[in-house]
């Protein structure tokens, strides 16, 4: 595994906006995935042009279960982002605002410079591959010699015959570099990160939460299970590297279910080389040793894996 590019200080904030739990910081996203088996779903797309594909960007939407696991274990806290923004932006002084804008301009200019350098590099490499010129940028002073070179080669290249004026002696005046406009994905800075005192209470979660917590604590990754008609599709490692193992459905301990659901889930799971997993919290049992990190409040979870018997 590659080393962490930028370490994230825990607990990191989770933005709660319009009932969704969102992560905007790319470092926090990779941190949660790397260290806490939390994938979430990237939902960043064009407004009104949402599409189902794998090329969506930030923000990352967390299921309430994922947000709750992170908060319960002390890795994150929930922030009412609307309030934090309104408060932070209104309290910002003029000096700070100008400083921030200047900083954005500086970053934009740097970015634009980087883009131009990359483009020049690419052009140079392409020319060199064709054997046309060496270092283009350096040779603006030695233009006559270079143009001779270029003509010498172009005789063998019918494409360039019509355009012998590739000579850079007609040097285009260097365009003034326009700074790129940068849209930062997070607002900290300029705002100071919201304090953990103002954190919102634990997210409310569906009844399948105990099963989610149990699987997460055992190192499994969970993704939404809609595609397979269950609560979660559960992966034994990062979903980019593994096929999922289980179609998991969380139930209450005394909740009645139809045997037809078991048969259907088991048959579907076996058909796609997975097992159907049902599980829930046993309210009568005493906490088992494997649950110690969740504190005493968490009851042990019991799960059953179902597969077709094959006869």
């Amino acid at each position: 595994m590659a080393p962490d590019p930028t370490p994230v200080t825990e607990p990191f904030p989770i933005s709660h906006i319009a009932g969704r739990y969102l992560l905007f910081d790319i470092n926090a996203i990779s941190h949660a995935r790397r260290h806490h088996n939390i994938c979430g779903v990237l939902i960043g797309t064009l407004p009104n042009l949402s599409q189902q594909n794998v090329f969506l960007g930030i923000p990352l939407e967390l299921m309430p279960e994922e947000a709750r696991v992170l908060v319960e274990r002390g890795h994150a806290y929930i922030v009412d982002d609307v309030r934090a923004h309104r408060k932070g932006c209104l309290e910002m002084s003029r000096d700070e605002r100008l400083k921030y804008l200047r900083e954005m301009d500086r970053q934009g200019l740097e970015f634009a410079k980087g883009v131009r350098e990359k483009a020049e590099e690419r052009a140079e490499r392409a020319l060199r591959e064709k054997g046309l010129v060496g270092r283009r940028g350096k040779e603006e002073s030695e233009a006559p010699q270079e143009s001779a070179d270029a003509e010498g080669v172009s005789t063998s290249n019918s494409l360039l015959d019509s355009t012998p004026s590739t000579s850079p002696s007609v040097a285009v005046p260097e365009k003034k570099l326009e700074p790129h406009f940068i849209t930062p994905t997070t607002s900290y800075p300029p705002l100071s990160p919201p304090s953990t005192d103002a954190a919102l209470p634990l997210p409310s979660v569906p009844k399948s939460y105990p099963l989610f917590r149990y699987l997460n604590s055992r190192g499994y990754f969970a993704m939404p299970g809609l595609r397979f008609g269950c609560n979660y599709s559960v992966y034994p490692g990062d979903p980019l590297r593994f096929h999922s193992h289980f179609l998991a459905t969380g139930l209450d301990w005394d909740e009645e279910f139809e045997l037809l659901d078991i048969v259907g889930g088991g048959r579907l799971g076996t058909g796609v080389k997975k097992a159907y997993l049902i599980g829930g919290e046993d309210p009568e049992a005493t906490p088992a040793e494997e649950e110690e990190q969740d504190g005493a409040s968490a009851k042990p979870v019991r799960a059953f894996s179902i597969e077709w018997a094959g006869f």
Partner: peptide, 16 residues
């Protein structure tokens, strides 16, 4: 009659 195997716990699936 249909037959399904139920395991007590999280058991990874067979790769038929």
């Amino acid at each position: 009659v249909v037959y399904y195997i139920v395991h007590d716990g999280v058991v990874k699936p067979r790769q038929n």
